[in-house]
Design a binder for these strands. Structure first.
Lengths: 125, 125, 125, 125
DNA sequence: GTGGTCTAGACCACC
DNA sequence: GTGGTCTAGACCACG
C-alpha cells in the first residue's frame, strides 16, 4: 500500500499512519496475513522518524489489528477485529458532531457538508 | 452568548472558545460592537483559568474579529472580516477530507456520513 | 485647541492628550495663562472617561507644564518649562532608535524613513 | 542569531523577540527552513520564562512566518510571507506619523528627525 | 473595574 | 529531547 502524509495538517503523523492502515483493512485492501513495510523501510519512504512508525504499529498491535513477529516483520492480524456495533455508532456520531461544529465556525451548514461530500464522491469516481 | 466546553474531547479549551465565537459571529448572533464577557467573568463561568480566555480572545483579536480595549472590555470588531471565498472553499474541502478519512478508518462510507448528517438534522428539528 | 483621538492606534488615550498639549505648547499655540477645557467638558467632547482627562492633566501638572487651580480650572503654566538639553538629546535618540527598529522589522531602511518624512513635509505644506 | 532584550524600555519582551525575528527574516539573515533556538534554550539564554518565548513564536506562526513542529523544533516557514505592498506603505506611514508626533511633543521638527537619523547612519558606519 | 504581561511549574503529545 | 496546553498567581496599564 502507499501512504500519504500531510505534515501541515496538524494531524500527528503516527495517527495518519494508523488511520490509513485501518482504512485499508476496513475496505479490504489489506487482507489478513499480508506483510506491512518494515519500520525502517517505511520511515525512509516517508522521510520520518522510525520511532513514529514504531508507535503507529504498536498502537495497532495493541488494538489487535496487527501482529508483530520479532525478526520477521509486521503482518495484518488473522483474527478479525470485531468492532462493537454500539461503539461504531458512537464513533460516527462523534465524528459528525465535531465536524459540524468546525464547519459551522466558518458559516457552513450541514447541507453544505452533504453537498461537499457528494461532490467528492463524483469527482473521485 | 453561552459557551459549552467539552474537556474530554481533547480539543484545547481555548480553541473551543475561538470556534464558538467565530461561529456565533458567522451566523449573526454576535454583531459588531457587542461586548463579550470579560476575561475574568468567562473564566469563572467556565471554571477555567483567565489566561485561557485571554489566549482565545487574543488570537481572535490578531485575526481581526475582536477588538480588546484595555480598561473597558472586549468587543466584536466593527470592521467586517472578509473571508476570502477561495479560502472558505479550501476550508470545507479540508474539513470534509478529514471527516472522510476518519470515518473510513472505521469502515464508514461517504454515504454513511451523509446519512448520519441527515439524521442529525431531522432529530434536531 | 482641538484634540484628535485615535482609539485604534493602541496608544493610550491619556498619552495622546498629553502629547497633543505638549506639542501645542511647544509650537506656541497654547501660551502661558491660557485656560484648558475643564475635565468634564473635554471628557464629553472626546466621549471618554473623565478619569482619563484627569490623569493627563495631572501628569502635565507634575511636569510643571500645567497649573490646576481648585475651583477655577486648568491653565498653561506661566513658568517656562526648561527641558534640560541633555535630556532632550536623549529623548530624540530614544525616539529614533525605537522607530528604526520598528521600521527595520518590516524591511525599511533609515533612508526609507527619511524619504517618508520628507514626503510628509511636502504633502502637509 | 543573537537577541537583545531591553527590559527597561517598556516594550513587552515577547514583542521584542517578534520584531527581531521579523527583522532578521526581512533582511535575509534567517532563511526558510532554518531552525530557531528551542523554546527552552532561548528562555535560558535571555533569562526569561519559556512561556514568553512560546508566545512570541506562536504569534509568528499564526502570521505564517514560522513553522512549529512538535517534537522537532521551530523553523522559518518555507512559504514566503507576502506582505502586501499597500500594507507595507501604510506601515511606514503609521510609524513615521507616530515618530513625528512624539518628536513634536518635545519641540523637534521633522528636520531634526532627519538629522538625527542621518547622524545615526554616519556614526554606525 | 477592565485587559496586558510575565513567572513558575505542571502535564501531555510527539519524535 | 521537542513544542502545546493549562493553571495559579503576581503586577502593571488603562478608564
Amino acid at each position: 500500500m502507499t501512504f500519504f502524509i500531510d505534515t501541515l495538517s496538524g494531524v500527528p503523523i503516527y495517527r495518519q499512519i494508523i488511520e490509513q492502515i485501518r482504512y485499508a483493512v476496513a475496505r479490504g485492501e489489506l487482507k489478513p496475513g499480508v506483510q506491512l513495510p518494515t519500520v525502517r523501510q517505511l520511515a525512509v519512504d516517508l522521510s520520518i522518524n522510525p520511532n513514529t512508525v514504531v508507535r503507529a504499529y504498536r498502537e495497532l498491535e495493541i488494538e489487535g489489528l496487527l501482529d508483530s513477529q520479532q525478526g520477521s516483520g509486521t503482518f495484518i492480524s488473522s483474527k478479525e477485529v470485531e468492532i462493537d456495533e454500539g461503539e461504531r455508532r458512537r464513533m460516527i456520531d462523534q465524528i459528525t458532531t465535531e465536524l459540524m461544529i468546525r464547519a459551522a465556525a466558518y458559516g457552513f451548514t450541514p447541507d453544505d457538508l452533504v453537498e461537499a461530500l457528494r461532490h467528492r464522491q463524483e469527482t473521485s469516481t
